[in-house]
Amino acid sequence: MCAQFTEDDEGKRIVNADGDEVGIVQSVEGGTVHVDPDPGMTDTIKSRLGWGDADEETYRLDEENVESITDDEIQLVRL
């Protein structure tokens, strides 16, 4: 999917392919989504999303990692 992010996506839950919440959309700036990750998210998932720097408060979500966008959530592809 070629995700098209808008400001309407702010506040949506980010869920993995199994439906588990991994974060919340903090902001959308210029079509780029910034995610506040769930504190329980594993380092493996963070690594696969390219979120390696543990000092960040929010992380950029790349379009290629998005399977679908609904009114309530953004679902990630199976990692």
Rank of each mutant, 00 (worst) to 15 (best):
E56Q: 11
R60E: 01
D8M: 10
L79K: 06
A3D: 01
V66A: 08
A17E: 08
D20Y: 01
E67K: 09
N16M: 00
C2P: 15
I45M: 13
Q4A: 09
M1R: 14
W51K: 06
H34P: 08
E63A: 11
V33M: 11
E73Q: 13
I45L: 07
R13P: 10
R13S: 12
G11T: 04
E29V: 15
L76S: 05
T42K: 08
Q26V: 08
R78Q: 10
G31W: 00
G40S: 14
E64L: 04
L61N: 14
C2N: 14
A17K: 07
I69Q: 13
P39L: 04
R78C: 07
G40H: 09
R48Y: 04
G19V: 05
D38L: 06
M41V: 02
D72A: 13
V33A: 12
D62Q: 07
R13G: 12
T44E: 07
E29T: 10
G31A: 05
W51V: 06
E21F: 08
D38Q: 09
P37N: 00
V66H: 05
T42V: 04
T32D: 12
Q75G: 13
D18M: 07
I24R: 15
V35H: 07
V25I: 10
F5E: 07
N65M: 09
E57Q: 11
I24G: 09
G40W: 03
V22G: 12
P39Y: 07
S47C: 01
L49E: 01
G11H: 09
V22L: 15
E57K: 14
T32H: 12
S47T: 00
T58Y: 00
S27K: 14
C2T: 11
T58D: 08
L61A: 15
T58C: 03
G23K: 09
D8F: 01
E21L: 10
T44P: 04
I74R: 02
N16A: 01
E29I: 14
G30V: 02
A17V: 04
R60F: 01
D43R: 03
V77E: 09
E29L: 10
E10K: 13
D53E: 02
L76G: 00
E64G: 09
R78A: 03
Q75I: 01
G40P: 09
T42L: 02
T70G: 12
I14V: 13
S68Q: 06
D36E: 13
E21K: 12
G11K: 08
W51E: 03
I69E: 14
G19Q: 07
M1S: 15
S27Q: 14
I45V: 10
E21M: 15
L61S: 13
C2A: 15
A3E: 00
G50F: 02
E7M: 02
V15N: 04
S47V: 04
R48H: 03
V28W: 08
N65P: 09
L79D: 05
I69S: 10
S27D: 12
V15L: 03
W51D: 03
E63P: 06
E7A: 04
E64Q: 05
I45T: 08
P37T: 04
D72R: 11
D53M: 04
A54T: 12
Q26E: 09
K12F: 07
V66D: 00
I74N: 00
D20K: 08
V15S: 01
T32I: 15
E67Y: 07
R13A: 15
R60M: 01
K46E: 03
E21V: 12
D8Q: 12
G52Y: 00
